[in-house]
């Protein structure tokens, strides 16, 4: 994938263009099939035509509802992810490099991790009520474990010879952590960040659907109860696009931060 030849520069541009064409062709066929399908479904409630969904997208975009709710959900994602990373990454580094910390934390982590963040929703409803804190807590919890486990695994897998080399050069423990272990584990940390974002993006929808007064999940549920299927679909499209863009952004970030790393098949 990463093989770039000297003569390939021009070809890459044309294949990217070709890729976009294939994308457009496939999606055009899909939308066409959807449109034809909607003609045969008598109820506009069950399957609105793509035109109705486009109109709903336009209307909600114009009156600010789309961006408002999207911003709220994105802000929650960012806040909970940063909070989770601030705790999980240092803890993961400790677990990966120190047997004491690993012994202390491994069992509770393995006990809590299988309980999905979504399963905390009823308890969180009781504890926090409907509002900001519920989706934030659920998303924090959901993002926390992939980050912790991924960082610990990355830190534990650092090539022993690299650390030995740093020792022979007389580096101190903290310097080795900062200059050797963290960079060596960074690709693994970034991969786990992508998994964490994907998981919390699913969780935000669930949490807002049940227990938030705003956000994309709330909007979907609200318009479902209003029986406005085109608007529901407009918000679903928005969730998909934002999920795609956040993942793309994180992939780009990985490329910038770790240009030496192989971006393998992990998707």
């Amino acid at each position: 994938m990463s093989a770039v030849s000297l003569t390939g520069a021009k070809a890459a541009g044309s294949t990217r263009f070709g890729g976009a064409l294939v994308y457009l062709r496939t999606m055009a066929l899909f939308v066409l099939a959807w449109y034809v399908g909607s003609l045969f479904v008598p109820s506009k409630l069950l399957l609105p035509s793509p035109l109705a969904v486009a109109a709903a997208l336009r209307d909600t975009a114009l009156n600010g509802e789309l961006f408002g709710n999207a911003l709220i959900s994105l802000a929650r994602l960012l806040a909970s992810l940063l909070a989770a990373a601030a705790i999980a990454v240092p803890l993961g580094l400790l677990m990966g490099r120190s047997r004491l910390w690993n012994d202390l934390l491994e069992l509770p982590v393995e006990m809590l991790r299988p309980i999905a963040g979504i399963a905390w929703i009823p308890l969180a409803l009781y504890l926090f009520g409907i509002g900001h804190r519920l989706p934030l807590f659920i998303m924090f919890y959901t993002a926390f474990f992939p980050l912790l486990v991924g960082t610990a695994a990355g830190a534990a897998a650092v090539d022993k010879r690299l650390i030995a080399a740093a020792r022979t050069m007389g580096l101190s423990g903290p310097t080795i952590m900062r200059r050797v272990i963290v960079p060596a584990a960074l690709p693994a940390i970034l991969v786990s960040a992508r998994l964490a974002v994907a998981a919390s993006w699913t969780a935000v929808v669930a949490a807002e659907l049940v227990g938030a007064p705003n956000g994309l999940g709330y909007a979907i549920e609200y318009y479902r109860s209003m029986l406005s299927t085109p608007t529901v679909m407009a918000f679903i499209v928005t969730i998909g696009v934002l999920g795609f863009l956040t993942d793309k952004g994180l992939r780009q970030l990985s490329k910038v931060l770790t240009p030496w790393a192989q971006t393998g098949a992990a998707r």
Partner: peptide, 23 residues
């Protein structure tokens, strides 16, 4: 030819389509 569909639907959380599925 199918990858665009996969890449389009994959980021849509399963829960997001729940209202439609209930419908």
């Amino acid at each position: 030819n199918l990858d665009p569909l996969v890449e389009t639907f994959r980021p849509i959380a399963a829960l997001a389509i729940l209202p439609l599925v209930i419908l």
